[in-house]
Nucleic acid binder design. Sequence first.
DNA 1: TCATAATAAGAAAACGATTACAACTATAAT
DNA 2: ATTATAGTTGTAATCGTTTTCTTATTATGA
Lengths: 337, 337
Amino acid sequence: MPTIKDVAKHANVSVATVSRVLSKTGTVSEKNTQNVLEAINALNYKPNALGRYLRTAHTQTILVVVPDITNPFFSNVMKGIQTMANEQGYDVLVMDAEHAHFDSRKCFDMLEQKQVDGLIMLTSRVDRNVLLDLGKEHAIVLACEYLEGTTLPTVSIDNISAARKMTEYLLGLNYTNIAHITGPMETVLGVDRLRGFKQALQAKSVDVKSLNIQEGDFSIESGYNIMGKLLSLEDRPEAVFAANDEMAMGAVNAAKAYGLNVPGDIAVTGFDDIKMASMFTPQLTTISQPTFEIGRKSMDLLFHLLNKEVLVQSQFVLEDTLVIRESCGHLKEQPLQ
Amino acid sequence: MPTIKDVAKHANVSVATVSRVLSKTGTVSEKNTQNVLEAINALNYKPNALGRYLRTAHTQTILVVVPDITNPFFSNVMKGIQTMANEQGYDVLVMDAEHAHFDSRKCFDMLEQKQVDGLIMLTSRVDRNVLLDLGKEHAIVLACEYLEGTTLPTVSIDNISAARKMTEYLLGLNYTNIAHITGPMETVLGVDRLRGFKQALQAKSVDVKSLNIQEGDFSIESGYNIMGKLLSLEDRPEAVFAANDEMAMGAVNAAKAYGLNVPGDIAVTGFDDIKMASMFTPQLTTISQPTFEIGRKSMDLLFHLLNKEVLVQSQFVLEDTLVIRESCGHLKEQPLQ
DNA sequence: TCATAATAAGAAAACGATTACAACTATAAT
DNA sequence: ATTATAGTTGTAATCGTTTTCTTATTATGA
């Protein structure tokens, strides 16, 4: 494996000169530039990134922690991050938090050990204080899940108002006995969507029955199981709002297994608008999040942080959209594909 | 940011001693060990990974190149890799090849520049010779898509026989006019599955009509569009075998849009058994791949390579399963969830 | 022609760890 | 007392770059 020294020797110059032509900084004569370039070619020299990183003290790679790589919602956000990162010459490391079953110190260490330059957290299920402290010294941005009263840069949608919007839509369809399958109550996402749900109900003076609120874990299975419970309630709900699309699909399938028709017998809505939401039968009415844009914006923010620029604005809430499809019995025109 | 020197000074020992207690190698007296540990704590010292990496010449991180991070099939393989990697103390970098629209030199450079210790390719749509050459000097394993006549370690299923099995199943259901929506013909995956399809037909002396073979690109959209073509054929196929689940779903939806019932009017099958295959209506009959295991095995192989062990076996083909659900009109018992 | 500025290039010092080597204990064996 | 041995420790080299100084050379302008 040739090093910069070998190149220097081969080109009859000093290592400094080689480094200069490599990084296109400083001034090197035309003749030497050519010599160095030839030597690089002749030896098939590839600069060792480690040497450079140690000296320059940054790795040009960032870490993103995602609750579950398997979840299509997050892979879209990831794609946005990835795209933006590559544009700026950064590489992206991914860490799967496995729904917070991981040791969050691992990702913090990577930051502190200079293994990565920055961090994008797609989950906030970590030690709040540690995260906040770390944010003072390092480049960290929070996406999707913001942290209550945080100083960290954040990009997400307004989950409360989105959930309220969804519930109001259901109310507008004249459903009043509405259930909500929540996300995990230790996530801001779960809590906020529940909050929006309640707000809409209370605004219409519909009372919120505690039996109609059941905690899920964002998985298809939990949607299926909880729907089972809901359906066996004495006062069976007419509509159920699931806190994400996966749970909604589980719920629909539970209803089908129960011999019920969706939306004929019971309406179901989701949240996130993952790709499958429109492929599913019935097509899911849901909240569409600008996933790619969330990713892009997060990386953009991180990039500013990395460059020590002062952020004029650090909290970004992006637009979500209620997309109405079939699962609530109100079919708007929509191409099937 | 404290360095090892600061710790040494604080603990009144040499940097060598600090390094020794850090890496638990060599012998250090009980007293000094304690002093060093205290100093580390007092200064909140985190060893700089870059320094270590440069010296030890490896980064403990591997790179995996995936055709499309958004595809659930690959995220499951990724999960297997990730799990195994973490067990062995490796980190995982992900690069999205965007269906080979990326510059493959980028991932090769990372290997050559020592940015990563090893490479797992989930796609082989790269320059064959470059890849093979690189494999002589570096740790590389190919997963999912093997390379014809390669010397590189490989783990995948036998796509030809799996596709044959699927086609035979269709034939067994007495369909004879069967179409195949292929994957991209520049992927081994696409070619192999087509090959298996043809083999099954030829074995039964059913002639393969060229109009019944249409090239897709693994996307839902292409499945939808191609199905449109297929349905307007004078001699409309009774069954269509799509080379992956996404295209199968697109095909089903096209049929629905056409006013056709699946499987009543036309049978459709997929390949891969992604999570949604069983959530979809009708539930997809498909080929199930041991995704997690493919990931695990690949990482295991890579790990051996990294340790310079000689591989007794380097080509692994894992078991696939035909999972029969609803989409071909032959419903076996299967829990709905 | 001389002072000044600009350009080119090398020597050597970082960066922060690991580790080979040597040196110095203390203890045990002779 | 002397030697051998094992256990500790420190010094300094090393990994492969980048970058700060210096110095030498050439070009520019008065």
